[in-house]
Design a protein around this nucleic acid. Structure first.
Lengths: 217, 217
DNA sequence: GCCATTATACCGACCGGTTGGTATGTATCA
DNA sequence: TGATACATACCAACCGGTCGGTATAATGGC
């Protein structure tokens, strides 16, 4: 039989958000029409404007969902690292390694980051929407900076470095690697860039001989 | 008297390209209308379609100009570094330092990179246009990788690293820092991120004890 | 030097198609 | 039976692009 046309408004909403995200990462927000979104989502314009007041509303809802997932993902990774090691430096290295694993396990080419997509069309969004980007960026900075200072307390860094910008390196390098992967279509690039961030931390905080990571004594 | 309406087609063309670039970095390509471009450039639609066959043509011409400047800038920096030091590692460190200087000297907030802007609307451009992005990315990889291998020959790295992805770190980190600056509006961020790349190279290729240069065995 | 001819550079009204958004109708649920 | 969750037809505004026209510069014959 045909699908019995079950009603599931939450799923419809999610399908629209999913379709919008995929299209926006390929075409940008402006070039992604409402018709194209509902076409891909298997919905109609009526459904779209029932769930979202406007296209701008969708933009905000979409990036809020994205930011929440991003945040949960980061905190989950840190929690997992915290269970595996009590050393803050090891936790950071593990966190990066987790991301590397995920990048390596990816099937399709990385579709890109919604934050970067938005910021290169920044003038199209209202300040409440852009505030989500800022807050997400600052969250990364805050969380990683705290962990880095813990690590520095245990393992005095071999050079004096600014901890804020060192924390920013995580976000920065991620975004840059996303741009580069999208440009070259090279799936391995993400993990290989992350590897260098790990190397840097190991060299910076590691023992003077620069040997590979050792479990904390 | 009024400006005597001098004819200068090349300048008109450049003015259109300049206006387009500024608008595209803020709104993206799709949301930048031809009317907006010519409005900002002080030209008309007639002039636009006289100089460019279509909006897509402008996109290609614009990114080609951008790529040529980017390439010239990189090669100039390397040439300048080559005059100041004969050591390839020092040349790389100088190259980064030059970029840091420029970032620090900037008045207005960094407007962003056209490559990243395009890649997040990738589906809007034909392959010839996207090829410009790829070629520019690969140029950075090629040039820096060659220099890094020279450096590694003189200063054996303290860890085994993949030189290709190490070369990619330059482009990657730049793009990421651009995204982050655009998000936070923090002018100092660019130079501070570049500083870490310099640190990484110094730690990686530098002497083990941090005192004297180790002669190659 | 001078004028006729041609090519270039530009102008701006206009066109068909697409856009975000609305109005109205209908089916499904509580 | 009222409210929710859609579906569809429609609209005004805007989009890239065209086209007839004009003003200026370059060219060539004399």
């Amino acid at each position: 039989m045909e699908s019995p046309r079950v009603r599931d408004p939450e799923r419809t909403r999610e399908r629209i958000l999913d379709a919008a995200q995929a299209l926006i990462l390929d075409h940008g927000f402006s070039a992604t029409s409402v018709d194209a979104i509902v076409g891909r989502a298997g919905a109609t314009k009526g459904a779209f404007f029932h769930h979202f007041g406007s296209k701008a509303d969708l933009a905000k809802a979409l990036v809020e969902r994205y930011a929440a997932l991003d945040r949960a993902h980061l905190e989950q990774g840190l929690a997992r690292a915290g269970k595996l090691s009590s050393d803050p430096l090891q936790q950071l290295l593990l966190l990066i390694a987790f991301y590397e694993e995920e990048f390596e396990a990816m099937q399709e080419p990385f579709p890109g980051c919604l934050f970067a997509s938005y910021i290169y069309e920044a003038k199209l969004f209202d300040d409440a929407t852009l505030a989500v980007l800022r807050e997400s960026t600052l969250l990364w900075r805050r969380v990683l900076r705290a962990k880095l200072e813990e690590a520095a307390a245990v393992h005095p860094p071999r050079r004096e470095v600014d901890m804020e910008s060192l924390a920013d390196l995580f976000y920065s390098l991620s975004e840059g690697a996303f741009v580069m992967t999208k440009t070259l279509g090279d799936k391995t690039l993400l993990a290989r860039q992350a590897r260098h961030l790990r190397n840097y931390l190991e060299l910076l905080f590691g023992p003077a001989d620069g040997a590979a990571t050792r479990p904390p004594s």
